[in-house]
């Protein structure tokens, strides 16, 4: 018997809602949207946590400017609070070393992280997922049964094709889908909204390609003042995620 499975539910029992930001495709802005969603949620008065499950390429701590933060050891690990967001990442333990994990190791690392992290009372836990449809997505659906998916895509057919597969997978896993966000839109296009209708998924709107965003990485206040954050805030309010 694996005792970790027995305690994960208890660790999350004071978490009201869990939203997993996912796409299947890399480079579409999942981590940025997950981090910004956390910042916007905190600013709107929600108690929010952010769990970075992109073990191979964790970046939420960089986006939030929390490279030097570390969890507090207290009957497990208490995540550090960064700009109002309780952030947990394997990067806090591995530093800048590579984290070369294979399938079963990914599952074990995920279980361990969920079993040791003491989130406390949260209105919302945002989970940043890695590209792909492997362990992180399958295990989250299996272990965090009440998690909802927030999909991110760019207008590129390459991204849409992968998200289409992910929608099918999530429906098979009976994971509720909050909706799909179109990111990095550069011109008037309507393909994502049409595809979302075809998938039976709510289209939450589009976010512009924002050339200013790179310069704001690591600075939560500056991130919140970007055009991207403003548009994301509107979409999240529309989706019922933000107050």
């Amino acid at each position: 018997m694996d005792p970790r499975l027995s305690v994960i539910g208890e660790r999350l029992e004071e978490v009201a809602r869990i939203i997993v930001v996912c796409s299947g495709k890399g480079g579409v802005g999942k981590s940025l949207i997950a981090s910004l969603t956390s910042l916007l949620s905190s600013r709107s008065g929600l108690r929010v946590g952010l769990l970075d499950l992109d073990f191979h390429g964790p970046s939420c701590h960089i986006i939030l400017g929390a490279r030097k933060a570390s969890p507090l050891e207290d009957r497990g690990l208490v995540p550090p609070t960064v700009a109002g967001v309780r952030l947990m990442s394997l990067a806090f333990l591995a530093g800048d070393k590579p984290i070369p994990l294979r399938g079963a190791d990914v599952t074990n690392a995920l279980l361990e992280l969920l079993a040791i992290t003491r989130w406390g009372r949260l209105d919302l836990l945002i989970v940043d997922s890695p590209p792909g449809m492997g362990e992180e997505i399958l295990d989250v659906a299996r272990i965090l049964r009440r998690a909802e998916a927030l999909l991110v895509t760019t207008p590129s057919p390459l991204s849409l094709s992968t998200v289409s597969r992910l929608v099918q997978l999530l429906k098979s896993l009976r994971t509720p889908i909050v909706g799909v966000l179109e990111n990095m839109r550069r011109e008037e296009e309507g393909e994502v909204a049409r595809e979302a209708r075809r998938w039976g998924v709510r289209y939450l709107g589009w976010l512009p390609y924002d050339p200013e965003i790179e310069a704001a990485i690591g600075d939560p206040a500056r991130l919140l003042s970007t055009q991207l954050a403003r548009r994301l805030g509107e979409a999240l309010r529309e989706a019922g995620i933000l107050r």
């Binding site: 018997m1 694996d2 005792p3 970790r4 499975l5 027995s6 305690v7 208890e10 050891e73 009957r75 497990g76 690990l77 361990e112 079993a115 040791i116 003491r118």
Partner: peptide, 18 residues
């Protein structure tokens, strides 16, 4: 895993199993 967190997990696991 931290010893305290592990102990919590073991107690819960044994209670669930029995």
């Amino acid at each position: 895993m931290h010893e305290w967190a592990l102990a919590e997990a073991i107690i819960r696991c044994v209670e669930d199993a029995t």
